[in-house]
Design a protein around this nucleic acid. Structure first.
Lengths: 134, 134
DNA sequence: ACATAATGCGTGTATATACCCGCACCTGGG
DNA sequence: CCCAGGTGCGGGTATATACACGCATTATGT
């Protein structure tokens, strides 16, 4: 019976383990998978505000703000003022873009490992199910 | 194409969101879903050492040690010395057992919400896929 | 028995994450 | 014009998480 198993516990555990796998692959590039993900979101979005980016990533605003500081200190992102004096705009720096590109093959390898474990069909199925929960 | 989507990012995001859902349900019981999970593991296992429990939960040993301190300060778990002077044994206190029992209906509700979203078939499928990754 | 290896843990350090609170700043209604 | 409410953000605090390192203890090989 799966009834007594906590779905959340399974999710958290898998997230930890898979994150370790990706982090290992990204070792030597100076970013972990959370930062990799942030940079990818940033490359895809057009100069989002902190709140917009946080919303896009499903992160709390204050969490994203703190995560950004680490990348800012490393020169990978920059924060500029928006037209509104309240909000700030997040920018992917050239270094950030370069770092992301450099790390992408390693990410691809980690992703391939996982797909090899799951098979493409189950990979698609997993992503579909995860999207239902987001 | 799903090829360009990061499985790990999806996993982490879903874990965050679902954790928030469970945490919300557990509000008022003084434990979050990570702690709930720890207490459940502890109830299931027989006086594990820190390493054994960490292994069972797929957590780093040092992480579990720190998580235990929070619960210990709240009187929900206790740490005793094992026969080996190196290792320590983790015990679920009576308060811990009671707290767990008290929180279980709320957990059940959160779990039910999720199953209603997924359906039982997809719930089983999700858990099966997550176990492949652990 | 002794030296070496393995085991179990704690600490230091760093990042990730969330919630609450408060401070600016904008926006509408009057 | 001004004031109430909404918006965007940072800081405080707490927990979760991992890795590297070191210390004490136990096990092992000769």
């Amino acid at each position: 019976m799966l009834t007594s198993e906590c779905i959340c516990t399974h999710l958290r555990r898998a997230a930890r383990g898979v994150s370790r796998h990706y982090d290992e692959a990204l070792e030597g590039f100076g970013i972990n998978v959370a930062q990799f993900s942030l940079l990818r979101h940033l490359r895809r979005l057009d100069q989002p505000s902190i709140s917009t980016l946080a919303e896009a990533m499903g992160l709390d605003r204050s969490t994203l703000g703190r995560n950004l500081r680490v990348l800012e200190a490393d020169g990978l992102v920059a924060l500029a003022e928006g037209q509104d004096l309240r909000n700030r705009i997040v920018l992917l720096s050239e270094q950030g873009r370069a770092r992301l590109q450099a790390a992408e093959p390693a990410w691809e390898q980690a992703q391939s490992d996982l797909i090899q474990t799951l098979g493409e069909g189950q990979r698609d199925e997993l992503v579909r199910l995860l999207e239902m929960l987001a």
